[in-house]
Design a protein around this nucleic acid. Structure first.
Lengths: 223, 223
DNA sequence: GAGCCAATTGTACTTTGGTACGAGACCGGA
DNA sequence: TCCGGTCTCGTACCAAAGTACAATTGGCTC
């Protein structure tokens, strides 16, 4: 009995995906859970210790972009994640796959194609629509971004929080206050972050992280 | 005899604008100069000490985005600038006006409307297409951005170069080497930049500057 | 020439930032 | 139970960042 979680804030999409899952044979018997928020998704996964597959919408209330995928991959590295997206930008596809997604399914995909995609993923393959793959030759910057995304995914949750605050230009002292930890600890985190991201200053870390479409950096809090 | 400069890298656009200018009565007798690069524009303006009007394309070879407008406003504050753009994003309009543009004319504008716009500007009014104004209420962040853009425009050319390098995450030492000046001087510039931008760390300066769509920050140099 | 401003540099200083090493607490898995 | 990883924190140290003050140069304008 495989456990599959659909995480999408739109009930209609969830329903459509559930239908496709029902038509997918490769998983055998399945149990489908639906969540409409990221927090709920993590609750479910934490309770049950992961799942056999997660269908994750890129755009969810609270956290948009790749933040969710990043966190998901960090906390449940062994759980395959298929990204569902309304956008069909080839760069998004490349980025999602670089972050360890097992597939990328645009919402416009016809159902029989979705079923085929899920069967592929069930078999351990990686699915992405061909028309979004060939065109975007992995350029130099894309590869750099992908590598950086990989590094980003190696951050621990707390380190990600620190990086998020770094991204607003805050001082170590301010970060310490906001997270209610000692400044020493913040320094330890920052130091570790810099090593993991392979940069040598907080400013570089922020600049590089901002290049990815992480929601954490899309909406900077007021000063 | 009013001196008007058209700065656009596309000859066809320059021609169309020149025609519209010829049909504009409010300026009286005019002399029209055309330039295809930003550098050439600045040469002309420096020679003649400004102009009575500049029609500036947002996208020019070398420097895209608002960089040119920013520099123009900084070096020739008394010269009115009308922004010409192929893009019609309301946010671009708001930003251009915040930076002191006297008008915003999309390239899709019909000629009679362009003439009307130029007449308005000649009369000291500010022109922007109504369909790009009403929708984007000046939100809180927009106002913050506009204020920050104002501050940005107060930077000197050299300070702008330093900020650009700051935006790539470089150390003072590296910036000094690239600009071939002493690290002390870089520090002096950075310090001045921070004051002018009203922030207290380089990282904040970078984060805030990147929120604007300045080309300097669009294409980060290789590491 | 006087005055203004950008740019440059120096010295000296304080504050942040970042590294290195060690260590205790907690937690989940083997 | 032991092991590994995360989070925590301290001390100590060095490098980078940032400030303050002062001074020189050069170009510009009035």
């Amino acid at each position: 009995m495989k456990k599959i979680v659909i995480a999408d804030d739109h009930p209609m999409i969830r329903g459509a995906l559930a239908l496709s899952l029902a038509a997918t044979t490769a998983f055998g018997k399945i149990e489908v859970l639906e969540t409409s928020t990221l927090d709920e998704l993590f609750e479910r996964l934490t309770e049950s210790g992961g799942a056999d597959l997660v269908l994750l919408d890129l755009r969810m209330p609270g956290v948009n972009g790749f933040e969710g995928l990043l966190t998901l991959r960090a906390r449940f590295p062994s759980t395959p994640v298929v990204v569902i997206s309304a956008l069909e930008d080839p760069r998004l596809v490349a980025e999602a796959l670089a972050l360890g997604a097992a597939g990328f399914i645009p919402k416009s995909t016809p159902r029989h194609e979705i079923v085929r995609a899920l069967n592929l993923v069930a078999a351990g393959e990686i699915y992405a629509p061909t028309h979004l793959m060939g065109l975007s030759m992995p350029s130099a910057t894309d590869r750099v971004d992908a590598e950086f995304a990989q590094r980003l995914s190696s951050l621990t949750p707390q380190q990600r929080r620190v990086l998020k605050l770094l991204g607003t230009g805050k001082l170590n002292k301010e970060i310490a206050y906001e997270l209610d930890i000692a400044e020493t600890t913040v320094k330890a985190h920052v130091s570790s972050i810099l090593h993991k991201l392979n940069v040598y200053s907080r400013t570089q870390a922020v600049v590089r992280a901002r290049r990815l479409h992480l929601s954490s950096f899309a909406d900077i809090a007021e000063v």
